[in-house]
Each structure stands twice: as structure tokens, then as C-alpha cells.
Amino acid sequence: MKAVFQHIKGDKTIWAIVAVLAIFSFMPVYSASTNLVYVVGSGSTLGYLVKHMVLLIMGFAIIYGVHKIPYRYFSGGSVLMLPIVIILLIFTLAQGTTIGGANASRWIRIPFVGIGFQTSTLAGLVLMVYVARYLARNKEKAIVFKESILQLWLPVSLVLLLILPANFSTTAIIFTMILIIAFVGGYPLKYIGFILGAGIIALSFFILIAKAFPDAMPNRVQTWQSRIDSFSSSEGKEAYQVEKAKIAIATGGPIGVGPGKSVQKNFLPQSSSDFIYAIIVEEYGLIGAILIVFIYFLLLFRVFVVLKKTTTIFGTLLVIGVGLPIIFQATINMAVATNLFPVTGQTLPLISSGGTSIWMTCFALGMILSVSASKEETEEDILDDNPLDILHETID
């Protein structure tokens, strides 16, 4: 065991939290996958469990590999990755795919692997690092709004506009997180107000265009509207899911019905992903529900511990940009399951089944651990970092 700890760096508590969430996820995923096996008629429960375990093992490999990289390289890496991400988003939006008979234009299929990849999660991660880079490089300078529009907000708006048609909730989370980073990074508050207003106007314009030309983006605005209507009126497909989730939570009681004994998992269409928290509450009760909330808030606390120890502006903004979305996503997922928020399609990080979400969460955690492991980085090293240097060092 000591030999293992010698090879891992950074905040050991974060490593422990990730391990606890990953190990705990095995039973809920195995239990909830019976819906896919016996109702949808796809695969086997053991097969879904093995797949989930493999994805988590790959996730831990990602964390290990990323946390070994000096975090200054993420700054230049974001510049190199941004055009790649834009191309992937355009390709995803153009071709889309179908998963389980449903339209899933936010996914692309990885060849020879058979796993769907959600490009918007990668785009969000790259965008957070890019924004942190810009703010760190301009921290000591007077922000010129016109220049920042070209250098910062044009790439941000382009990426968000490419994500929006297929995934409104992810767009909203990324945009909110970027505004938070901008505020923390010292971007003028009045300009943040302008950007927020422009975002609202752009969303309104998009909705009007989608309403006027429904064939161009079929079912997207209708989906958003139906989710909001279902949340307020308790009617529709989303309301059915929420109703079953509420029954699962009510059935759980203080200590739950026991691992694997959930009944509502057979009725919840997204029992192993979007609504897995409801299944956890049903099987493990109020105690399990509170424990999960506590673990995520412990992760949030450790993120702030890393923030306190970080010596560079970029490191601080990087940890905020990639760390807070994990907690935000978990909070939204649990709020949806408990009917405190409309259905969004956000998974429970490190617990829900799904490859892209697990991998990108692990990549973000690897970045945080890289920051916490670094003690010799200086602001000059990061600000002088050239994106081309990464290519040169990789080739060498």
C-alpha cells in the first residue's frame, strides 16, 4: 500500500473521495441496470456492471496520468484543443446519432469501441481552462472590452452556440461557471452584466428561430418547454419519471429497502443515469441520501483547500473552473430526482453509468490534483507558456 501512495501526488482526501464514490457506485448501477435488461431488453446486468467497472478503471488511469502533468501545460493545451473541440461539435451537430431509438444529437460513436462520446462535456472542460488562461494572463492589465470580445467571448460564444441546440442544460451550466470564473478573475462587473444580457438575448433569438423553423432543429425547444410544463403541471413523460422517483424516495424511508431491492428501478427509464439518486434513496434510505450529499460537499471543501494552497492565479481559476461544475452537476442531478428542479439530463458524477461523464470528471479531478501536487510553479512559468512548446516537447 505504501508503494501505491508513493506514486500518487496531490490531495489524498480527494483520491479517497473518488475511490469511495466509485466503489459505492457498483451496487446502484448493477441494481438499476435491470431496467435496461428486462424492460428495454438490452444486455445483462453483469455486463453493465463490468462495463461500468472498466470505465471507472479507465477513469482512474486518466486521473493518474493527468495529475502527473505540470498544470502549466493545461494553459497552452486549451488553446490547441479549442479548434479541435469546435470541429468535433460541428461534426456532432451535423451527424448526430441514435441511442436506444431516441435522438441523441449530442453524441458521436467512437469507432471499434461501441461507446458514445458526448463532445459537449469535453468542450466545457476545454473552455473552462481557456477562460482561466485568459483571465490569468490579463489579471494585471486593464481589461479592454472590445479586445476581450475577440479574444475571450467570441470563442466562448461559438462553443456555447454549438452546444445549445442539443444540450441546453450543459450550455447553461458552462455559461454560469464561466461568469463565476470571470467574476473571481477580476473581469469588470459591468462587462459581466453586458455578457449576461447578451447571452439572454441570444437564447431568446435562438428560441424564436427554432419556433419559426422547427424542421431545422426538431423537438429541441419543444423538449425544453415540455420539461418546464411537466415540472409545473405534473403531466408528460418527464413528469412520469419524476413521479416514479418520488415514489422511490418515499419508499426508501430512513434506512431503505436494501441493496438491489428497488422496485421503481423497473419503471424509471433513466434509473442507472439521470435518476440513479432516487434508486439510491430507495435502497439505502435517508441515511444513504445524506451520506452521498455529505461526500460531494466534502469534495467541495477539499477543492477550497486546494484553492487556499494554490500560489498562482491560473491555478486558482483552473481549480474553480473544473472543480465547481462537478459539485454543481451533482446538485442539479439530486435536485431533479427530488423534484426541486426540472429534468435536465445531468448525471451524478462518478456514480451514474456512462463513459464520457466519468472520463471528463476524472480529467477535471486530475487537473485539480495536478494543481495540489505542484509546489514550484510560478505565475511567470504559466504566463510565458507557449502552446507550441507543448507540441515540441511531445514530438521530442
Rank of each mutant, 00 (worst) to 15 (best):
G256T: 03
V306S: 03
A123D: 00
P325N: 08
L318H: 04
Q6I: 08
R72A: 12
D384A: 12
P349G: 07
G252W: 05
L369R: 04
I255C: 06
A210P: 00
L324R: 01
G43L: 09
K237N: 13
V39I: 15
F363Q: 04
V319F: 02
F60M: 12
L268R: 02
R220S: 01
L391K: 06
S271F: 10
L55K: 13
G197A: 15
F145R: 06
G236N: 07
L152N: 00
F275N: 02
L268D: 01
G252F: 07
G43E: 11
V66A: 11
M81F: 15
S78D: 00
I57S: 15
A104I: 14
R302P: 01
I84L: 15
H52S: 04
I110K: 08
Q241W: 14
G43K: 11
D396H: 06
A212W: 12
I395W: 11
G315L: 04
G59V: 11
P387V: 13
A198Y: 09
G256S: 02
S272Q: 15
S169M: 04
S148V: 10
I23P: 03
Q270G: 09
E379F: 09
N266C: 02
G252K: 04
F5I: 07
Y187T: 04
A364C: 14
I395M: 09
K309F: 14
I351Q: 02
M360Y: 10
V29E: 00
L36W: 14
Y48M: 10
F112D: 05
D229T: 13
L388V: 14
